[in-house]
Amino acid sequence: MAGLRDDAQWIVLMGFIVSFSLFFVAIVINQSTVVGQTTAEAVIEFPKNDIRGMRDMIIQSEFLVDEGVFNNKTNVQNDIKTLSLHRQNSVVSFSSRNPTGSDPHTYIEIHYSNGVTAYNETWRSN
């Protein structure tokens, strides 16, 4: 390094290190909000509560009975399908199999789809 004064090399090096690390930190902070956003949006978009509510109602409705002039079971099950379609943008269908002599369990097949998330289950009573 002929003709170059090398008195302050240490300070210059420190200057470089500080400025580059500031940029690195800025990039990390910049990404952190985006990460929080995608996480929150994923939680909001997944219809966890819709699926839970619909599943709970279908299982409850299975144990209602049509008695006299009150078609309780039929009415409630039709209400579930209609309201799911109208208010939760989801197609719900289900069918059940009653206990037989060899198998004392009730089975319900539940299907749910809102075009993005699909949920299928075969529920068995205990």
Binding site: N49, D50, G53, M54, D56, M57, Q60, S61, L64, V69, F70, N71, N72, N75, V76, D79, I80, L83, R87, Q88
Partner: peptide, 29 residues
Amino acid sequence: RVSQWVIVEKRFPDCSAGSCSGKHAVLVE
């Protein structure tokens, strides 16, 4: 928006005839 299913012993909108009652599912939003 949050919602909750409820089974009620009432036919909406209000209906007094006997056959209008029985259990129905409604959605509270």
